[in-house]
Nucleic acid binder design. Structure first.
Length: 213
DNA sequence: GTATCGATTAGC
DNA sequence: CTAATCGATACA
């Protein structure tokens, strides 16, 4: 876990939907002031560049979403509900505002740091949910715009070994995935149940086909 | 200026 | 189910 290299910017320069899929199972790493923390990405949500009313970029550039319109391979971090941060990875060429929201991970390194930040003991709750992901990793608005190919925050080139994952359609778009047995999903329109949280919403028929709310 | 809601979470 | 809590957004 010591000599990990970040994925290059080119990795992100393609449709968010494809980047999202390629991110599943990979290691998300943050070398912060309290040391290295890392997790294996198990759930992602893609926001496409055009015609997606659910995207922050739908109405054009603003101070908040401007990094979404910039170069791929950068972090888009926003503050929401007055208390949570969410981490996105900017995709597609500059000018096309697409990104992938990291929704959940499984701890790979620095779990003790994550526990301290989260105030939670259970490993399953350290990185479950986009707000928890940012909190566990120690990510906030100061990380907005960070270059993922050069900074302390990155996706490792070599994904950690382990398990197979399923790719499924998410409630908002893009895709969701799971590795753990107790995670269930939406698979190409076939409703399953999210054991992690909440009640399942109607699924999409086709991954990559976005819809609002 | 005010009102409303949010790419959420924790708790009852 | 709701409170928390504040920035972004819509509108007068």
């Amino acid at each position: 876990m010591t000599s990990l290299r970040p994925l290059p910017r080119e990795f992100y320069a393609r449709p968010a939907f494809r980047v999202a899929r390629a991110l599943l199972g990979r290691a998300l790493v943050h070398d912060g002031p309290q040391g290295r923390v890392a997790g294996r990405i198990v759930e992602v949500e893609a926001y496409r560049s055009a015609g997606d009313p659910a995207s922050h970029a739908f109405r054009g550039p603003t101070p908040r979403n401007r990094v979404m319109f910039g170069e791929p391979g950068h972090a888009y971090v926003y503050f929401t509900y007055g208390m949570h941060h969410c981490l996105n990875l900017v995709c597609e060429p500059a000018g096309q505002a697409a990104a992938v929201l990291i929704r959940a991970f499984e701890p790979l390194a620095g779990a003790h740091v994550m526990r301290a930040r989260r105030g939670v003991e259970e490993s399953m709750r350290l990185g479950r949910g986009p707000g928890c992901v940012a909190q566990a990793l120690g990510i906030d608005r100061s990380h907005d715009g960070l270059d993922l190919s050069a900074g302390p925050l990155f996706i490792a080139q070599a994904p950690p070994q382990l398990g197979s994952h399923r790719i499924v359609a998410g409630p908002r778009i893009g895709i969701r995935v799971a590795l753990e047995r107790d995670w269930r999903f939406w698979l190409a329109g076939h409703p399953c149940v999210s054991a992690s949280r909440g009640t399942p919403k109607p699924a999409l028929a086709t991954p990559g086909t976005s819809h609002s709310r």
